[in-house]
């Protein structure tokens, strides 16, 4: 008993001493880098294999390149954005605060004027303040590309991986997260792309109302595959879209990913993902950090990263990409160039 107690005391004091030593040594502090960046993620947080993870990747790339450290917060809901942004701004330690996602725009327009010396960026929305640089993406252009692909494929007999098209019907589907202008612009571009490829093709669309409801995504997509004879479904629905992939696998049809190359980030579905409409959120974050490090950050401006800037684009699936016929890829390349040259104008509203 006595022995035990002594051993416990020794152990406890060892930990205690280590703690004190650590305090003096300041371990756990990562504030010794020349530049500090704060990241406020969109709700859903990191680990979404998509939007937030792309943003984090951008910050990581920048950390590998420059003498930089970054701190992150992951608000659980819209009400926490304002506080999260202020926490970073108030400390005054950060050279740049990255606000990821359109839902932060309201909070940022309130905060930015209160901290005129603090640099901010916002992704996916425009905030007109002198210290905010806004990055938006040409989602309709990118969606047009995958729509073009879907429109070309739905009419043919095409089988690859775990999926095949239904040559009897030319129907493709779109599953959206919430019915907001941004997500609707995905659909608008997608529809235009399908129509460009194939006048007769039909597009069925549905909004789940949630970016985090895999089950609902699955049942929505399944009904498109089964009841509407859709053979390719594009989603712009975050984690809900995982359900679309599940449904595609169950039904032996195809799906199109969004935000990053989902055939890589969700490898188990690579056998049904034809392509993904990527949004290079990582390059937006990286570029912003780079400009801060180089001292040429320009607030008060907004930058749209479209097809021309490689901000968006269709990336073929890791497994299925090679099986897509070259003539279709050529047609996609042509329409891409035509959009860049302004010969095709892509609508951004339904």
């Amino acid at each position: 008993m006595v022995q035990n107690r002594r051993r416990f005391l020794e152990g406890a004091s060892a930990v205690g001493l280590a703690g004190i030593a650590g305090c003096v040594g300041g371990f756990g502090d990562e504030g010794d880098a020349a530049y500090q960046v704060g990241m406020v993620y969109a709700t859903g947080g990191t680990g979404d294999d998509s939007f937030n993870d792309m943003a984090q990747q951008g910050a990581r790339d920048a950390r590998d390149e420059f003498d930089l450290s970054f701190d992150e917060t992951e608000p659980d809901n819209e009400g926490q954005f304002e506080g999260a942004q202020r926490d970073f701004a108030e400390s005054g330690d950060y050279d740049l605060i990255n606000c990821i996602g359109y839902a932060q725009a309201g909070a940022l327009s309130e905060n930015a004027p209160d901290y005129p010396d603090q640099n901010f960026i916002i992704v996916d929305e425009v905030v007109e303040e002198d210290n905010v640089r806004s990055y938006t993406f040409g989602e309709p252009e990118g969606s047009f590309q995958v729509g073009h692909l879907a429109g070309l494929l739905t009419d043919r007999e095409f089988a690859a991986g775990a999926g095949e098209t239904n040559p009897d019907a030319s129907t493709v589907g779109f599953v959206g997260g919430t019915e907001t202008p941004l997500i609707q612009s995905f659909e608008a571009g997608f529809r235009a792309g399908v129509e460009y490829a194939n006048d007769d093709a039909e597009v069925v669309s549905s909004y789940v109302g949630d970016f985090n409801d895999t089950g609902q995504g699955q049942s929505t997509a399944r009904s498109m595959y089964q009841n509407n004879d859709a053979d390719i479904v594009f989603h712009a629905a975050g984690r809900t879209g995982i359900g679309v992939f599940q449904a595609a696998q169950d039904e032996g049809r195809f799906a199109l990913g969004v935000d990053d190359d989902q055939s890589l980030s969700n490898e188990s579905f690579a056998d049904v993902i034809l392509a993904s409409m990527v949004k290079r959120v990582d390059s937006a974050v990286y570029n912003a950090i780079e400009s801060v490090v180089n001292g040429n950050f320009e607030g008060g401006e907004s930058e749209t990263l479209g097809l021309e800037e490689d901000g968006v684009g269709a990336v073929y699936g890791d497994q299925l990409g090679d099986e897509i016929p070259q003539e279709i890829k050529d047609q996609l390349e042509e329409s891409r160039q035509a959009i860049i040259d302004g010969e095709i104008s892509v609508p951004s509203e339904l």
Binding site: A18, G19, I20, A21, G22, C23, G25, G26, F27, G28, D29, E30, D32, S69
Partner: peptide, 19 residues
């Protein structure tokens, strides 16, 4: 982490006192 406390071949990243 970048800077941690080295103790017996393991790096301890979090400082409880600081937390």
């Amino acid at each position: 982490c970048r800077s941690g406390l080295q103790l017996g071949g393991t790096t301890f990243c979090y400082n409880p006192m600081q937390v």
